[in-house]
């Protein structure tokens, strides 16, 4: 779907964060020279069309005690990837689940599921639950813990 310049401005403004003012969409609208109705209407359309996934509070997992995030990676036969991805994406401890390409021979994994837990044992348990769900469709797995955040900024659009 095509989004225009005004949509982009609305996205940039609203994903940076809605102000904590009684009428936040009005505040955004004022800054962009639009009406609040237009901002809300366009956001609704973008949500319906799948450009905006959701509008809400973005939790800081680490600060909330979920100090262990594990990037679990799996090797799934291509013909079953969508079915398996769909199942794993539904798990309530999985925050992101993506199909990505393999790079053989050094990288055989094509399914990525990010899990969050309060302990390393918790991550292992979650990994085990995913493995159980995948059963014989799982041809190989690993889990990568993040040891350091080297850079984290909000979404930014390059030139």
């Amino acid at each position: 779907m095509n989004i225009d310049k005004i949509d982009r401005q609305i996205i940039t403004a609203t994903q940076a964060g809605l102000p904590l003012t009684p009428q936040p969409y009005q505040t955004i609208a004022n800054a962009l020279g639009l009406s609040a109705e237009m901002v809300m209407q366009r956001m609704m359309v973008m949500q319906d069309q799948g450009v905006i996934r959701r509008i809400g509070a973005v939790p800081n997992h680490y600060r909330l005690g979920y100090k262990f995030n594990g990037m679990t990676v799996w090797n799934i036969a291509d013909e079953y990837i969508n079915e398996m991805g769909g199942r794993i994406g539904q798990l309530d401890f999985v925050s992101h689940c993506y199909h990505r390409p393999r790079h053989l021979p050094e990288w055989p994994y094509n399914l990525f599921a990010m899990v969050h837990s309060k302990s390393e044992a918790g991550v292992k348990e979650q990994q085990g639950m995913i493995a159980e769900l995948l059963g014989g469709y799982n041809l190989g797995q690993d889990v990568l813990y993040s040891t350091r955040i080297l850079k984290k900024t909000g979404l930014r659009i390059g030139r």
């Binding site: 996205i11 994903q15 940076a16 450009v51 905006i52 509008i55």
Partner: peptide, 9 residues
């Protein structure tokens, strides 16, 4: 505890 309230693309 939250980084923001916003739209997720």
């Amino acid at each position: 505890f939250i980084s923001r309230i916003g739209s997720i693309i």
